[in-house]
Design a protein around this nucleic acid. Structure first.
Lengths: 345, 345
DNA sequence: AATCTGGTGGCAATCGTTTGCCAACTTTTG
DNA sequence: CAAAAGTTGGCAAACGATTGCCACCAGATT
C-alpha cells in the first residue's frame, strides 16, 4: 500500500480515483458516500477511509448536473448600503451556513428589472432565493415564484411564502405613544414610492390615528437614505407638526442631523420616531425612539422556510405559507412631550 | 415554423434544443455563443436569433464542468456584524456584478479553521477568493494561495497579492494631531490578539510617538465589538491618559457610550480617535475623530486584482502584487485640547 | 432440491457544455 | 490547373457525479 499524497497540488481527487484505490466501481463509491445503507458497511468503511485519506471533496458542479440541486440560495437585497439589510444578510448567512448551503449575495439596486433578470439568469444555479424588499409587481413576483422556490421578506403576494415584520402593528403603538405625550399633529415621512412596507406603515398610522379621532399627514416620498433626511426634515418642519414617524431609521437619523443644524431641538421642538432599530439608532444624537424589528430573525426564518420547502418537495403537506414577526416600540430620547403652547386644533 | 414557447415552465432550454431548431450541431451552437468568429456570421446570426427567441440561459454547472471556471468568487469576512465589512461587501459586490461574476458570501466568524475548511470545500466551485481580515497564519495563507487564486485585504503574506489600507500611516497623523493638541500621554486600545492590522497600528503609533520623544501605552486586547467598548473605556480611564486611539470605530463608539455613562466628557476629559470611519462614526455623540479608510474601494480593487489575475493566467507578465490605499484623518468632535492642569511628566 | 428474497456491486446512460480533431468545401497561391 | 491554405461545421470524447437496471450470491422458504 503506497501512501497517497493529500492531492494538494494538481488534479483534484474524484470518485474514480477512490474507486481505483479501493478496487470497486465508481458507482459504488458514489453510493457509499451519498446513500449509506445501500452498500455493505464493510465496503463503505474502506471507501470512506480512502476518501478521507485522499482528502476527497465532491465536485458540486458535477453533482448539480445530475441531481439538479446546487445547495446554493441567493439572497437579493436592494442596496447593500442600507444597514437594514446587514441584518438580513447576517440572518440568512447564519442559517444557510449551518444547513450547509452556499449564500449568493445579489444587490439589485432597487431595480425590479435587474431583479428578474438576475433571478432568471441564475435560475439553474440556485435551489431557491430570498427576496428582501422586492420591487417587483405582484404579477411578476407570482410568475417568478412559479419558476423557482422563493420566500419574500416584507412583501406579500398571493401564494408566495413570506416573512413579514409586523411594523404596522408597532406603528399603532408608536402613534399611541405620541398621543399620550400630547401630540395631535403627527406626520408620516414616506419611503420610496413603490415600497410595499412604506405603504403598509402609512395605512397603519392613518388607521390608528383615525381610531383616536386624529388626522395624520404625509410628506415624501423620500429615498430611504441618510442624505434624504435633510429634505425630509425640512418638509416636516414646514408642516408645523409636533411629531413625526419616519419610514425607517436611516431617514430618521438623516433628519436628526439636519434638525440639529437648523437649531430645532429633538424632542423639545419635534419628536421623531424611526423604524427598524438599525445599527446606530441607539447611539445617534439623541438616541432614536424606534420600532425594534427582529431583522436577523426574519432572515433566519425566511431561510428555514425555504429549506423546509425544498426538503418537502414531494411530501404532501405543504409548509407554512407565511410568518409574521412582531415588533416592539423602543423608547429612547427622540420623543418627548408636546411643546408647550402648541395650538390644539 | 412553429412559435417556440419561451420555456417558462418545464425543462430548461439547452444548446441541443437550439441546434435542432437551427439545423446545426450542438457543438456549433456552443461555438457560436462562446467563440464568436469561429463560425460563419450568417449561421451565428441564426443561432443567436433562436437562442434569444427561446430565452436560452446557459447552464453554468455544465459549463464549469468542462471549462473548470465557475465565474464565482467567494468573499470571506469574519463577522457580518462588523460594519467594516459592509464596505467590503459592497465594494466587492459592485465590482463582481459588473464583471458578471457571482458573489459568494462566507462568514468565517473569526475562526481560521472555518476559513481553511470552507475554502478547501469550495475550492472547485470557485474561481478565486477575497480574504478580508484573515486569521490564518502566514504558512496556511501561502499554502491556500497555492491552491487557488487569492487576494487578501488588510493582510500581507509573502507572494500573496493583497490590498492593504494604510491605516498605520494615518495613525502617524492622528498621533501628531493629538500631540499638537497638547496630549503627552496617549494610549492604544488594542484589537484582537492575532489581528494583523491591530499590530500594525500599534507599531505605527509607537514609532511616531517615539519620533516625538514620547512613550505610548497599550490596553487590551479587546474583541472589536461595541460591548467591549465598556471594558476598554474603563481600562483607558484607569491609565489616566488624556487621549486614546482605538483599534477601530466600533470599539471607539462603544467607549463613547460608557464614558458618557461614567460622566467622563469627550473630548474635555479624554480625547478619542477611532479607525475606519464606519457608518455611524459621523453621527455618534460626539461625532468621532477617525482615520477615514477607503473601505469600498479596497473591496473593488481586491476584486479587480483577482479578476485580472484570472484573465492573465497564461500571460507572461504577472499582475501587480500588492496595493496600498491611503487613509486620511477626519477630525470631528471627539478630540480636543488636553485638559488644563494635566501633569507634564 | 427448487425457488424466492434481499443484499451488494457493476455497467452504462445521463446531465449540458466544451473542445480536439477531422472532413468538406472554398479561396488563394504558385 | 493543382496544391496549399483557410473556413466552417460535425463527431465524439471528455468533465465528475448520479441512478436505473441487471447480475450475482447468500440464506430463507416451500
Amino acid at each position: 500500500m503506497d501512501s497517497p499524497r493529500p492531492a494538494k497540488r494538481g488534479r483534484p481527487v474524484t470518485i474514480t480515483d477512490i474507486a481505483a484505490l479501493t478496487g470497486v466501481a465508481p458507482s459504488t463509491v458514489s453510493r457509499a458516500l451519498t446513500r449509506p445503507g445501500r452498500v455493505n458497511p464493510a465496503t463503505r468503511e474502506r471507501i470512506e477511509a480512502v476518501a478521507r485519506q485522499l482528502n476527497y471533496v465532491p465536485n458540486s458542479q458535477a453533482r448539480a448536473l445530475t441531481s439538479g440541486r446546487t445547495r446554493t440560495v441567493a439572497v437579493l437585497v436592494s442596496g447593500v448600503t442600507n444597514p437594514f439589510y446587514f441584518g438580513i444578510i447576517r440572518g440568512t448567512q447564519q442559517e444557510l451556513k449551518t444547513a450547509g448551503y452556499a449564500h449568493l449575495l445579489i444587490d439589485v439596486e432597487d431595480s425590479g428589472e435587474l431583479e428578474t433578470q438576475m433571478l432568471h439568469r441564475m435560475r439553474q444555479s440556485l435551489d431557491g432565493a430570498i427576496l428582501a424588499a422586492s420591487r417587483l409587481s405582484e404579477r411578476e413576483l407570482i410568475g417568478l415564484a412559479a419558476e423557482m422556490p422563493l420566500v419574500t421578506i416584507n412583501r406579500e403576494a398571493r401564494g408566495v411564502p413570506s416573512v413579514v415584520i409586523d411594523t404596522p402593528a408597532g406603528i399603532g403603538q408608536a402613534v399611541e405613544h405620541l398621543i399620550s405625550l400630547g401630540h395631535r399633529d403627527i406626520v408620516y415621512v414616506a419611503g420610496p414610492e413603490r415600497s410595499w412596507p412604506s405603504e403598509a406603515r402609512w395605512h397603519a398610522m392613518r388607521a390608528t390615528a383615525a381610531g383616536h379621532g386624529l388626522q395624520v399627514r404625509r410628506v415624501g416620498p423620500f429615498p430611504p437614505e441618510r442624505p434624504s433626511g435633510s429634505a425630509a426634515a425640512d418638509a416636516v418642519v414646514n408642516t408645523r407638526a409636533t411629531a413625526c414617524i419616519a419610514f425607517n431609521d436611516l431617514l430618521a437619523i438623516g433628519m436628526l442631523t439636519r434638525l440639529r443644524d437648523r437649531g430645532i431641538r429633538v424632542p423639545d421642538d419635534l419628536s421623531v420616531v424611526g423604524c427598524d432599530d438599525i445599527f446606530g439608532a441607539d447611539f445617534c444624537h439623541p438616541p432614536l425612539t424606534t420600532l425594534t424589528a427582529p431583522i436577523d430573525q426574519a432572515g433566519r426564518v425566511a431561510v428555514a422556510m425555504l429549506l423546509s420547502r425544498l426538503a418537502e418537495r414531494s411530501t404532501p403537506h405543504p409548509p407554512r405559507r407565511s410568518v409574521v414577526l412582531p415588533t416592539h416600540l423602543t423608547i429612547r430620547e427622540s420623543t418627548g412631550p408636546v411643546p408647550a403652547g402648541t395650538d390644539r386644533p
